[in-house]
Design a protein around this nucleic acid. Structure first.
Length: 517
DNA sequence: TTCCGACAGTGGGGTCGCAAT
DNA sequence: ATTGCGACCCCACTATCGGAA
């Protein structure tokens, strides 16, 4: 199969907003692919290379040759080229990777270059990812959609499912099941502003501490233990203490869902969490890191030969407590029809927050483990902090935000001039979140009025610090990047405040006072 | 006909390892 | 020794399509 066939389909997919049309276009390519091409074609259609790390990114794609006239690249030779890029390492490897990319682009047509660029950066932005691909696979193979999705979420491997459905025949899909040792798509949580609203959506529910660590899926088959992250990355060799812990559990074959987190003591029930940055640092470090990770469990998907994913949540919790004991995350049960239980749950969540944890996850008692879904089964609730900050600059947006000023640089007042001139501002981060189309249009107009003179062509537009925005965020983190050594975590715009002046905005001293000890 | 669930897009901060400088 | 890049943790929110109600 020529890469051009995929590139042409991707162009057409990007050109339509109809999801059914996108699905049809992708399905046509799947039908046309030879079995040997299928593994690569499937990945490219969902916008990813087959290699996990090539060492190539946006920077490696600058100053490349112009497009070829005639399509000659095959899907398999392109994949082989990226395979060689992935294998490169050591001195001179960047130059050798560069040569590979130059050669590839010189032989690619314009649509192929666009596709390759999107695959390398992971930002194809054609309006079709896994969801559309699975619908297309359903159509191309003539199999039930639910069966395709279940196979993918249980195996975590869309390529294998595609090959089974299209090459081995529809019956082969029935062969997919939960396999101990092989990661499956983790269940995800929706969000709600309050516990009451979360309970409205779930009905009777378990209310669990939400810990600010890293999600892990733990597999044990005898002495063999594997640890996967949320994106199904295998991090087993980075967390030996977690492996040991799983080996000590009273079951031979297990699949567990949980969180690893750095605490200031060994016991979750008495310790406080360390900042998320400490957990992240520990997990990113290959060896010899002093911070141990604590393991907290909140679900069990398999136990000694029995799959539990289709069991209701309260049944899985029972099993979890038997097998995990104290490792099970602290939990209360609340029924929205029983005010006393809701009040108790409110106190339970307040206690979790007082202990330094992130919030709560509300989990319907009745729902099965919905692999890969972000449904109403699980709903997270986190407190929100707000500040009035001043827009110092804005960046021009991309894609559907092209021509709009999107990403705002946010500053607090610095009346004492600790980080610059007295009466100036100190930057605490950026945000592009929370903006509706109307807000984007409004702020583009408003900020152009405030633009400092003499800026042409840049992607950052500096403005006079006069526009106040109300910002919500989850907390503060230490920053090596910003002058105050502080940055906002998960900042988003609530509303513009043209009714306020910069002098009304919060000061850096007020921000520092928010820091939890 | 309206409503709402699922999906894609638009980027944020931090950390590490590695190669180049 | 420092810097820049790539990869991957954490993530919020809005717009849109199309099936469900």
């Amino acid at each position: 199969m020529l890469l051009q066939e995929i590139a042409a389909a991707v162009e057409a997919v990007a050109a339509t907003s109809s999801r059914t049309a996108k699905t049809g276009l992708v399905a046509d390519v799947l039908r046309a692919a030879e079995p040997a091409d299928l593994p690569v074609a499937v990945r490219y259609l969902e916008g990813e290379l087959t290699q996990r790390r090539t060492g190539l990114g946006w920077r490696s794609l600058q100053d490349l040759p112009g497009p070829a006239e005639q399509p000659t690249l095959t899907v398999l030779e392109v994949d082989a080229a990226f395979e060689r890029a992935q294998a490169e390492s050591g001195a001179g490897s960047q130059a050798r990777r560069r040569d590979l990319v130059v050669d590839l682009f010189a032989r690619a047509t314009a649509p192929e270059q666009h596709l390759l660029r999107g695959l390398v950066t992971g930002e194809l932005r054609q309006g079709a990812q896994r969801g559309v691909l699975l619908d297309a696979l359903t159509a191309a193979a003539g199999v039930p959609a639910a069966q395709v999705r279940r196979a993918v979420t249980l195996s975590g491997d869309v390529v294998e499912v595609a090959v089974a459905a299209l090459v081995d025949g529809p019956d082969a899909l029935g062969g997919f099941g939960l396999e101990v040792g092989r990661a499956l798509a983790p269940m995800l949580a929706a969000a709600a502003p309050t516990l009451a609203e979360a309970l409205e959506r779930t009905g009777p529910a378990g209310v669990e501490w939400k810990l600010d660590g890293v999600r892990v899926q733990l597999h044990r088959d005898g002495d063999a233990v594997r640890v996967f992250t949320r994106s199904l990355d295998d991090v087993t060799d980075r967390v030996p203490e977690v492996v040991e812990l799983v080996r000590s559990l009273p079951a031979e074959r297990l699949v567990l869902d949980g969180e690893v987190i750095a605490l200031d003591g060994p016991d979750l029930r008495t310790a406080r969490p360390l900042p998320f940055q400490r957990t992240a640092s520990r997990l990113a470090t290959r060896a010899g890191h002093p911070v141990p990770l604590s393991t907290v469990l909140f679900d069990v998907l398999h136990l000694d030969g029995t799959d539990l994913v289709d069991e209701p949540a309260d049944r899985r919790r029972e099993v979890l407590e038997q097998v995990g004991g104290d490792l099970a995350v602290p939990r209360a049960v609340a029924d929205p029809g029983d005010p006393a239980s809701v009040t108790a749950a409110e106190r339970f969540v307040a206690d979790a927050l007082a202990r330094g944890h992130e919030g709560a996850v509300v989990k319907s008692l009745a729902t099965p483990y919905a692999m890969g879904r972000r449904g109403a089964g699980w709903v997270k609730v986190k407190p929100r902090i707000t500040l009035d900050l001043v827009v110092l600059a804005a960046e021009w947006g991309h894609g559907r935000r092209t021509g709009r000023l999107s990403n705002l640089h946010l500053g607090a007042r610095d009346p004492e001039g600790r980080f610059g001139p007295a009466g100036g501002f100190v930057m605490l981060g950026k945000t592009f979140k929370g903006l509706t189309d109307a807000m984007l249009a409004w702020q583009t107009e408003a900020l152009l009025q405030l633009a400092e003179p003499g800026q042409e062509g840049g992607y950052v537009l500096r403005v006079r610090p006069e526009l106040v925005v109300e910002i919500a965020f989850d907390g503060l983190q230490t920053s090596p990047r910003y002058p105050a050594g502080l940055a906002l975590r998960f900042a988003r715009v609530l509303r513009h405040r043209p009714d306020r002046t910069a002098g009304d905005a919060d000061t850096i001293e007020a921000v520092e006072a928010l820091q939890v000890p």
